[in-house]
């Protein structure tokens, strides 16, 4: 099966460990993610002002490209791409007048997008569709006493109309990891915000958030945190180094994309993990647990 795929800006740079593990993983299920031709950034953060249609053009152009690809499903790995594209679909479907203005603005661009032609699918949803049985069949390694704390953050869950699972009590990542034989740990900060783009000029806020999130995962016995957003990844991973400099008692924890764990369990060569992209080195714990 082939599915159209939109990587977004960060999976080709800081997030190479995410794309590098997710795509070979899908191949194991005979799913080929075909990257859209000539794509560009979706705009990252959905425009929330009612009259600013200009900021809707980037995600809509991406959806136009997906429509032109001929495949009705568009796969995203990045949680922020998922959110922005999904919200753009709701936006274009919910307001005909604004849709007409956008079509008019893009009148030289041939293909018009109305909202129903493309379905944006996040990788977690796709894996859930594939199902526990198929996931189980592909697992080659067994791990014992390796506690994984799935962290969802915001963009997969909020607002409600784009949520891939319950906004308050999501379980989708747990279901997939448990199907692959992992043990997951609940921690109450799993749907809390890491402070997102505030990292650019307010890193102290991200520090305060990360400290709470990490402490909560550690106190609940986690060995690693896994997630699906390249911005959460940076905020949770890099900032721990800064926190540690200020607080020697702070206990750090490795952060990984959930696909990295699955790829290791399914015997995909470990090089695709690009461990050099991690700030807190996950290799010692992965070695201890027999995954490396």
């Amino acid at each position: 099966m082939e599915i159209s795929y939109f990587p977004g800006c960060t999976l080709k740079t800081n997030g190479r460990n995410f794309e590098g593990t997710a795509l070979p993983l899908l191949e194991l299920f005979d799913i080929h993610a075909k990257e859209l031709d000539d794509w560009y950034c979706c705009g990252v953060s959905f425009s929330q002002s009612a009259d600013n249609l200009m900021q809707q053009i980037a995600p809509i152009r991406t959806l136009v490209k997906a429509k032109e690809s001929g495949n009705t499903r568009l796969l995203t790995l990045c949680a922020m791409c998922y959110n922005t594209l999904q919200r753009a679909i709701f936006f274009i479907k919910s307001d005909e007048d604004k849709r007409d203005i956008i079509h008019d603005f893009m009148y030289r661009e041939g293909t018009k997008f109305y909202g129903d032609e493309v379905e944006v699918v996040h990788l977690l949803t796709l894996l859930k569709e594939i199902g526990s049985e198929e996931i189980k069949k592909r697992v080659k390694k067994k791990v014992d006493e390796f506690k994984i704390a799935p962290y969802y953050g915001c963009m997969l869950l909020r607002p409600k109309e784009v949520a891939i699972d319950s906004s308050n009590a999501p379980e989708i990542m747990e279901e997939i990891l448990e199907a692959a034989g992992c043990e997951t740990t609940y921690f109450p900060f799993k749907t809390e915000c890491c402070a997102s783009y505030q990292i650019v000029n307010n890193s102290e806020i991200v520090k305060a958030r990360t400290k709470k999130i990490v402490n909560s995962a550690v106190k609940n016995g986690a060995d690693v945190i896994v997630l699906s957003c390249p911005l959460c990844f940076y905020n949770l991973d890099e900032i721990q180094i800064e926190i540690k400099k200020e607080d020697k008692n702070f206990k750090t924890i490795p952060v990984l994309y959930f696909t990295q764990i699955l790829a290791l369990l399914m015997g995909i060569k470990s090089e695709v993990n690009n461990f050099s992209l991690h700030y807190i080195d996950p290799t010692p714990v992965l070695k201890r647990k027999g995954l490396l």
Binding site: G8, C9, N14, V44, M80, L231, Y234
Partner: peptide, 15 residues
Amino acid sequence: RELPPIAIIAANRKM
């Protein structure tokens, strides 16, 4: 250089 593009673009869009 260290920051992921996703952070810089989002901050640009919002601020």
